[in-house]
Design a protein around this nucleic acid. Structure first.
Length: 486
RNA sequence: GGUGGGUUGGCCGAGAGGCGAGGCAACGGACUGCAAAUCCGUGUACACGGGUUCAAAUCCCGUACCCACCUCCA
């Protein structure tokens, strides 16, 4: 069975056929680094990370390019507001984003080009567009260069819109434009309003690139004239992706074969916006939840479905994940992250993933396998040793988790955890062990009042106790509900 | 005005003509000193009104409500 993906351009699920057998070229629009990343931003990162991992699992050699936009109007405006250099803000937020990705086990791409590092490539592309009659320098002396929408008959093809129905682009003073829908490829430097550091030399004078041209230039540079998949968030379809495609194709390139767009995370029914409250920034959420829990929550919904974010739902997801983790612990099996192979995965799981990354259905297979394993474990009696059947289930579970970037022993989850965390765990383990010894003695003496009092005290400290055939086990309980997300 | 998406059980969340995805919660049973964990069992959900069909959550027509994009956006 083939891997099939929903292509936004054709609005249908199609077999994935790479341009070159065994290879996959993937370009994803990353973020404009202008503020702390929130849950919505990171959803895109996680979704395309799953895509990338799945392509690899299927045996493709993946070249994954994800850009960052480190110069634009908002960055300049925010930096000015905060009284610091724009490049400092961008760099700072970029590091914040890297931390967020790392905390969610989003693997780094093959390369992460930044717009400011590719100005010559953009200038080259703009020159090509001008020479082919698809772009022109504004005649008002502003130093702007525009893409000539009317010169490219396919404009609007990606989002099925007619040029006549579109509203005018507001990205520059319309006086220099031939058509109000023309969009900026290059923005002349406004010396009185913008810092000189935010301008680069060009044949049209100092200036900076328009928003869309960077992706055309960088995708072309790193993936070639034609490549397989282009991804990004739903809101980028228009104008960003429409314009990218227009630029690249007008320049004679084939560009992307497939377009994939991830849906939104909303809060209180509204799109999460950078201007909204910041309780949902990644650092804030990770102060209450483990990265693996947030990732599991995000993977649980199909990438094209809207998700209404709530801490209640995140709690549920965390509980569900703990069920899986608890099974693995009791089965006593572990594997190394990143070693899963297609052969280790249940056929139903593979089928689910092959159908446009059906992660929800894939998790259903995961849970079915966990139940099988638990059943085997329950049948294993009191010997305390997991049977071959239970171990086999555990290996399947680990392989599935691995492919989804949810392997519990992936060193990535240790990101941010210092040595102190490990030492603290050891210390807690020692203290709890001492208390548990007392409790075990009390139980042996049939002094259940004392035994239960000890258990209650441990529980009050946020630690759950389970009695197993092999003796008591402790684990950290869920965070108290009344403190979350504040 | 143009383009696209959505409404599924107490909750989250898949599915897209025919055996009730899965999770969380709840209830009953097993296990346990009691719990916890685990296992077994318990649900006749698909916004509304029509229609097509042997069969509709799924297709068609209509209605209501919600959301996104239309040049800042993951």
């Amino acid at each position: 069975m083939n891997f099939r993906i929903y292509d936004t351009a054709t609005r249908e699920v199609r077999d994935f056929v790479p341009l070159e057998e065994g290879k996959a070229g993937l370009y994803v629009c990353g973020l404009t680094v202008q503020s702390e990343p929130h849950v919505g931003h990171v959803r895109s990162g996680v979704n395309f990370d799953v895509l990338q991992r799945w392509l690899r699992a299927l045996g493709h050699e993946v070249t994954f390019i994800r850009n960052t936009t480190d110069i634009d109007d908002k960055i300049l405006a925010k930096a000015a507001e905060q009284g610091r250099p724009w490049y400092n803000l961008a760099y700072d937020m970029h590091r914040e984003l890297d931390r967020a990705y790392a905390a969610l086990n989003v693997a780094p791409p093959t390369y992460e080009p930044a717009a400011t590092g590719h100005v010559p490539e953009m200038v080259e592309l703009i020159e090509t567009l001008i020479s082919r009659g698809h772009a022109y320098a504004a005649e008002d002396g502003s130093g702007d260069v525009y893409f000539d929408v009317r010169s490219f008959p396919d404009y609007g093809q990606l989002t099925r819109q007619k040029v006549e129905d579109m509203e005018a682009a507001a990205d520059a003073d319309p006086r220099g434009k031939r058509d109000p829908r023309d969009f900026a490829l290059w923005k002349g430097w406004k010396s009185e309003k913008e810092p000189r550091t935010a301008s680069w030399p060009s044949p049209w004078g100092r200036g900076r690139p328009g928003w869309h041209i960077e992706c055309s230039a960088m995708a072309g540079k790193y993936l070639g004239d034609a490549f397989d998949i282009h991804g990004g968030g739903m809101d980028l379809r228009f104008p960003h992706h429409e314009n990218e495609q227009a630029q690249s194709r007008a320049a004679g390139q084939g560009f992307a074969s497939y377009w994939m767009h991830n849906a939104w995370i909303t809060t209180a029914g509204e799109k999460m916006s950078k201007s909204l409250g910041n309780s949902l920034t990644i650092p804030a959420v990770l102060s209450e939840y483990r990265g693996i829990e947030l990732r599991y929550y995000l993977v649980g919904a199909h990438y094209r479905s809207h998700v209404e974010f709530s801490f209640e739902a995140l709690d549920e997801a965390a509980t569900g994940l703990r069920r899986v983790e608890s099974f693995l612990e009791r089965a006593g099996v572990t594997t190394e992250a990143g070693t899963a192979e297609l052969a280790d995965l249940p056929a139903d799981f593979v089928a689910a993933m092959n159908e446009d990354l059906g992660t929800s259905a894939a998790l259903a297979v995961l849970h079915d396998t966990v139940r099988e394993g638990n059943r085997a474990l329950a049948d294993d009696g009191t010997a305390g040793v997991a049977s071959e059947s239970a171990q086999s289930s555990a290996r399947h579970v680990l392989a599935m988790l691995d492919v989804l970037g949810l392997h519990p022993h992936d060193p990535a989850w240790a990101t941010g955890a210092s040595d102190v965390t490990g030492r603290l765990e050891g210390a807690v383990d020692g203290l709890v062990a001492a208390l548990l010894e007392q409790r075990t003695q009390a139980r042996a003496d049939k002094d259940f009042a004392t035994a239960d009092a000890i258990r209650d005290r441990i529980k009050a400290a946020g630690i759950e106790i389970e009695d197993t055939p092999a003796g008591p086990r402790w684990s950290l309980g869920a965070p108290p509900a009344d403190t979350r997300g504040k």
